[in-house]
Amino acid sequence: MATPYLFIAPFYLLYVLFMLAPIGVALWLSLCEWVGLGTPHWVGLRNYHHLLTDGSFQRALGNTGVYVLVSVAVIVPAALLIAQALNVRGLRARDLWRTAYFVPMVVSPIVVALVFGLIFDRHFGLANAVLRALFGTGGVDWLGDPTMARVSICLVMVWRWTGYLTIFFLAGLQNVPRELYESASLDGAGRLRTFRAVTLPALRPVTAFVLVTSFIGAAQIFDEPYLLTGGGPSEATLSVAQFVYRAAFERQQFGYAAAAGVVLFAVVFTVSQLFNRLLGIGRPV
């Protein structure tokens, strides 16, 4: 009788200790003022009030919104297109392509940041050198100009995540029965109609999973902006996760950091639960 519970017990033990308890503590801390030493001092909702009017937090939210948007509206469709290309019948070296596209995901974020720091260097970087060779001008301030810095972070995200998500779509496409395509072409359906009538419905579960995963991933992005631009210039690339980190570990505002974390949690958790419900994922088979 107790057997199944024993099998899942280790997970729940860790879940309670290292997920639920911290969330509880976060909720409580978010209602306190605390510098990390001494006793936290109860301040009610004041931290949340401050967040509402904190320009940095609004910028962090906006930037994170951009990262989420790029992730969901650029990276996911790009991954789907690439997966389509890799699913062409009789394609040679399929293993080589998908493996190579996946490699950026294997690379440690610090290495990614070093590599792109090298490429995006304003004066001597490869990106500007290539632009100079092709167009004669290469003065793009990739990481120093607010807009360009945001674009650069997004480029790195595209580079890092696209091949990873492609794997999921490719597996989904390979799971679509060939007969469906054959009957569609017998019915005289064009390429676009086949895609809409056959491919997309068959890909529903994968698409749902990929959308939710990349939404959550982008919403809590930290490594790329922190390492590549430090959140700058003038907070143009600051993410919410870095806002939390900065408040707690650089400014000793633990309560304020906890409040920002709770806001992020509330948004991400609600949206992804809605997604899960709507798209019907996350039920045991």
Partner: peptide, 22 residues
């Protein structure tokens, strides 16, 4: 199972500070 699966959508940033403190 739902509880387990939903823990996928807990962003690390909310746990970061309290877990460190604990």
């Amino acid at each position: 199972f739902g509880v387990m699966f939903s823990s996928l959508s807990i962003p690390f940033a909310v746990i970061l500070v309290p877990l460190f403190v604990i």
